[in-house]
Amino acid sequence: MSATLRIASRDLGAFFRAPAGWLLAALVLALQAIQLHAVAIGTERRPSAAVLELFLLNAAFLTEVLAAVLALRLTVDEDHEAGGLLLTAPVPERALVVGRFLGAFFYLAIVTLLSLHLPALLWVHGKISVGHVVTGYLGVLLVGAGALAIASAAAAITRRPFGAVLLTAAILALLELGHQLATVAELGVRPWLRAVAPVWGRFTSFRQGVLQLSDVVFFASLVYLGLLLATRALATRRSS
């Protein structure tokens, strides 16, 4: 097993060894169920596809929040024993960053996929396609991956766990707010502001059941860029 996968499996195991990992998963799943019943279905008679869209939209935002919380576990704090060990471990920075990212991503993916029973209810009672659900969940996972990549970069830059959470949340909030600000921004800037918002902008096609190449490429780019930044930041810390 390569160093990357060893780190990933170790980190994934750590999530499920601690009660906090289970509690967090249970909390997220409960929130997903509540948002489906209270917000997506709500009191209006929405068509099933509209309910699914709204559910996926809320699920994507919840996933961003979950990714920001997971930044707590992505930091490498040299003041702590484990962090110091990781920093001095004989593994390349890339393996360290990608391994930790994959561990957190697998955890996020498991929690996300455990909520599949919720859209299944809509599938039984409404007129939605399996393809719509699959596309939507692929989008949620991509949003999660993108947010976790940002969290990885934030964790590498800030060093402190809560600093990483705050920085991740701030970056994600800025990107999402940019989409809302696009309506009042300069004409030339508007498409860019809309294009970099993960959920409001790029997730729209996924929640509508449309698989769009440019959106998949965007999330892949976000992951690449986040991990690149994290790797470079970690390299700088190691060299100093």
């Binding site: 596809a49 007129k127 939605i128 396609s129 393809g131 719509h132 699959v134 596309t135 294009a195 096609s205 509508q208 059941g209 449309v210 698989l211 769009q212 190449l213 440019s214 490429v217 965007f218 780019s221 690449y224 860029l225 690149l228 930044l229 470079r232």
Partner: peptide, 26 residues
């Protein structure tokens, strides 16, 4: 990092120019 950013932006611009859509909704 800058080269990575330029690469990412270029790939995204190319993907937007040659975009493909598959509608899997009902």
């Amino acid at each position: 990092i800058g080269l990575g950013l330029v690469f990412v932006v270029s790939v995204n611009v190319a993907a937007s120019a040659r975009d493909r859509r598959v509608d899997l909704s009902f």
